[in-house]
Design a protein around this nucleic acid. Structure first.
Lengths: 184, 184
DNA sequence: CACGATACGGAGACACTCTCCGCTTAGCAA
DNA sequence: TTGCTAAGCGGAGAGTGTCTCCGTATCGTG
């Protein structure tokens, strides 16, 4: 790729990250182009669709997911604490921009979504937590990783759309956690 | 209101209900106007915003909510069955059109939403179920009606956005139910 | 029947998405 | 350095949707 094209591409991604955070996933792409100082054509050549752009924006996000999972798993503690710590991290990770929870949760199971692979790092990270809890026989047999992602994604989605703060989200996550932990 | 205006209004609502069901909440309002055989101006005079139109469309929905709650409460049975029956009905009620779960769940707590009052019949209906379970000491003390609505709304939202069928939704609702029922 | 108030409708201003194509420029080769 | 060409640029414009404005038509009353 030519050097100027590379510069433009990087600049567009940077600006898009900012605009998505400010205005949510529905922000105008023309505005992204304008702020990045390029024509609409340039934006659409680099990123044929909104999703393709989002995919690039999420590149660094993948690392944050891995890191968050590692941090949560490093702490020793009761299964309920571990699960809640991961749920909290999960909600934070998918809520980086408005519309994120819905977007990411639905993309996780949609093979036609260009960001499916990005989203699946969340599934894998959740799986690490699940395995740990399984080893301790702390999880009910019926629940699986996908269900957990859907439930926590659902909580994140209502929190996002309803503008709930952490204090309101916490009890929801507790209910979900208690519903899947093995009875004492 | 003039008779012709009344006719037009009714026709618009009827057509809108159909179009929303077919194409989801984001359907083109110009298309609604066209199908109803009126000009765009007429539609926007009767319903200044998309939400105002949705409000009218949901008029009959309110009755269905009351009815569903009554039917669920009429059946005797273990608390878990009651709760799951209501959850299932709840998901069905908010999923009448695509985008419904997110719309309704976020409107429930948004005083600026024109459909807030419509949505609150769901809260009240849920409250009836909650009271019944409280009387039997079947619910944990920490959970309240609003949280239940958020959780079930969240499940409905992911089901809606991810195209999940009833079989996939059921286990999610079970986790939520088990998380809020008093331990045996 | 006549006449005002009421309501209609669709043209058009504005916003967003995405494409197309003539123009510019980077980067290489001589 | 210069000239060439493929790669890349940008923005006009077509398509679609929202919502408004106002000249025109219709209702329904006296």
């Amino acid at each position: 790729m030519r050097a100027d094209a590379q510069r433009n591409r990087a600049r567009i991604v940077e600006v898009a990250r900012e605009v998505f955070r400010e205005q949510g996933y529905d922000a105008s792409l023309d505005e992204v182009a304008k702020r990045a100082g390029v024509g609409a054509g340039t934006l659409y050549r680099h990123f044929p669709s909104r999703e393709a752009l989002l995919d690039a924006v999420m590149q660094s996000w993948v690392d944050r997911v891995e890191e968050a999972a590692g941090k949560v798993l490093a702490h020793e503690g009761p299964p309920r604490d571990l699960l809640l710590a991961w749920f909290t991290a999960y909600v934070g990770l998918v809520s980086l921009h408005k519309g994120g929870p819905a977007k990411i949760t639905s993309a996780m199971g949609d093979p036609t979504s260009p960001i499916m692979h990005k989203c699946q790092v969340l599934t894998r990270a959740t799986d690490r937590v699940v395995e740990r809890l399984r080893a301790e026989d702390a999880l009910r047999a019926e629940v699986d990783t996908v269900q957990i992602c859907r439930l926590v994604g659902g909580v994140a989605a209502v929190a996002d759309q309803g503008g709930l703060d952490d204090g309101a989200v916490r009890p929801l996550l507790e209910v979900v956690a208690d519903g899947m932990l093995a009875p004492a």
